Computed example of a mutant assay.
Amino acid sequence: MENLKPIHVFATWQVKEGQMESILNILQTVRAESIREKGNLFYKIHRSNADENTIVLFEGYADEAAIAEHRNTAHYQDLVIGKIIPLLENREVILATPVPE
């Protein structure tokens, strides 16, 4: 079997003024659902110390297929795409593979 490499997601979200609490509430549901996915390794939510309107997500998935599955889930489509993204000023997502130590 091919050795599958984990993929980490670093997402930086610039939240529209006044929308942070709404987004954090929705994100708790997204996190709870995401960590139940078979290919999810972890899902961590951070708030920037430098900018109170910036959220940084750090997520881990078993492989590329697990990320594709995550993006096709109802909670991702309904909550992230449908409810959160309209409340963001900007969104940057970086996919990275951990470098062996």
Rank of each mutant, 00 (worst) to 15 (best):
E52C: 10
S48W: 05
G39A: 04
M20G: 07
L24D: 08
T73V: 06
I67R: 02
G60M: 06
I23D: 00
I35P: 09
A74I: 08
I26F: 09
I55Y: 01
E59Y: 01
A68N: 15
N53M: 06
G60Q: 06
E52V: 09
S22F: 11
Q28T: 13
H46L: 11
F58N: 08
H70M: 03
N25P: 07
T54A: 09
V56Q: 10
F58C: 08
N72A: 12
I26T: 10
A74Y: 10
Q19F: 09
N53T: 06
E64A: 12
Y61D: 05
I67L: 05
A32Q: 13
A68P: 09
E52S: 13
Y61S: 04
L57Q: 07
N40S: 14
T29A: 14
R31F: 07
V30E: 02
I35S: 04
D51L: 15
L27E: 03
E37H: 00
N40G: 07
H70V: 00
I55N: 01
R47W: 10
L57D: 10
A65F: 04
E52N: 14
V30L: 08
E52L: 10
V56I: 13
T29M: 15
A62L: 12
Q19D: 11
I55A: 01
A68V: 15
L27H: 04
L57G: 09
K44D: 11
V30D: 00
S34R: 01
I67T: 06
L24F: 07
T73H: 03
A32S: 14
A50K: 14
E37Y: 01
I45P: 01
S22Q: 15
T29Y: 14
N49T: 15
V30I: 13
N25I: 09
G39S: 03
I55C: 01
F42G: 02
T29F: 14
A65Y: 06
T54P: 05
L57R: 02
H75G: 04
H46C: 13
F42C: 01
H46I: 01
R71I: 03
H75W: 02
E64I: 10
L41S: 06
I55L: 12
K44Y: 11
S34H: 04
N25C: 13
M20N: 08
E64V: 10
R36W: 03
N40R: 14
Y43G: 03
F58D: 09
T73W: 03
T73M: 02
Q19R: 13
I45Q: 04
F58V: 09
N40E: 07
L24I: 11
A65P: 05
Q19W: 08
N53F: 05
R47E: 13
T54R: 07
T29W: 14
I23F: 04
R47G: 08
N49I: 14
F58I: 10
I55M: 08
K44E: 11
I67H: 02
K44P: 03
